[in-house]
């Protein structure tokens, strides 16, 4: 008997052509124009000069940009370090079924429904020392809290705001992951007399890997692009304590209308995000691989 291999039909690729055309107009062509603007000095539509890598050099050597990038990395790192464990803990403590489960889901998801600029406004009032609940309480406790005057306080307030706004997303994703684990796993664990921690470490955490990967990527990208909330809350200040990359880019592109440097900076920003997502994705994939191979000892 001869083994016949099924011929592979590559024509199906043409089916993605409509999507490709849409993406070309919505993403690829705009990105190409950004590349194009990053090598020119456009003074007016009629007057433009090719400047080569000059803008890239200017942006790469900009001290303010270094500060904004460092600030951003610290912020995104802190967001992931706090929100992911907190979200998992929240999901673990949520009821599994019944009306309580539905009620908790709605309550937990509430903050996700609030628009970004409203979140900023809420926290602006919440943190005020005269009428704000948090600000006034901290004042009473003897802490000289001021998110408009103290750089560290401003930074922590923005972080707290992001945690308040987005931890529920992580919790909901983790919750969905938890609910998809079949009961048989828990039964087996009970028979083996596994501790609560062992159940978490060897059943729940590995089974949540997929959704946690999405949570990490989403939270990383969103926090890396954060703009509206700190803009409303602190306007990037005091000084530039809460000036993150987006804010810096907007100052350049919209405030000063420097299209060339802004385009160069956008591309660098894009490359940073691309690298981080690629590394994170591969790292988490690999984690899954070793777990599968390691399996049961």
């Amino acid at each position: 008997m001869s083994v016949t291999t099924k011929p592979v039909n590559q024509k199906a690729w043409f089916l993605i052509l409509p999507v490709f055309i849409c993406v070309a107009f919505s993403a690829i062509l705009p990105l190409m124009t950004v590349v194009n603007y990053s090598v020119q000095d456009i003074i007016s539509p009629e007057r433009r000069v090719f400047v080569g890598t000059e803008w890239f050099a200017a942006v790469m050597r900009d001290e303010d940009l270094h500060a904004a990038l460092w600030n951003q990395l610290k912020f995104s790192g802190a967001v992931l370090l706090v929100e992911i464990p907190l979200g998992i803990a929240l999901a673990l403590s949520m009821p599994a079924a019944g009306w309580k489960a539905s009620a908790t889901l709605v309550i937990v998801a509430l903050s996700l429904l609030i628009p970004w600029n409203v979140v900023g406004t809420i926290w602006q009032i919440f943190g005020r020392a005269d009428i704000g609940l948090m600000g006034a309480t901290l004042q009473r406790l003897g802490i000289e809290y001021s998110y408009t005057g103290d750089a560290l306080h401003a930074w922590l307030t923005v972080l707290l705001m992001d945690i308040w706004h987005w931890t529920p997303l992580v919790a909901l994703l983790a919750y969905a992951g938890l609910r998809s684990i079949p009961d048989a796993y828990y039964h087996a664990a009970r028979i083996d007399g596994a501790s609560k921690f062992a159940v978490f470490r060897y059943i729940q955490l590995p089974k949540m890997r997929g959704v946690l990967m999405i949570a990490v990527l989403l939270r990383f990208m969103d926090s890396f692009m954060i703009y509206t909330e700190p803009f409303v809350l602190t306007g990037g200040g005091p000084g530039n304590a809460t000036t993150f990359l987006s804010q810096y880019l907007t100052q350049k592109a919209v405030g000063q209308f420097d299209l060339g440097p802004a385009a160069a900076f956008s591309l660098i920003y894009f490359l940073i995000i691309l690298l981080f997502c690629f590394v994170l994705y591969n790292w988490m994939q690999r984690l899954g691989q070793t777990e599968k191979e390691g399996g049961h000892d």
Partner: peptide, 12 residues
Amino acid sequence: WMAWTTPVAIFF
């Protein structure tokens, strides 16, 4: 109209 330059065209 879109102010394309030769180096960018070569790149893409």
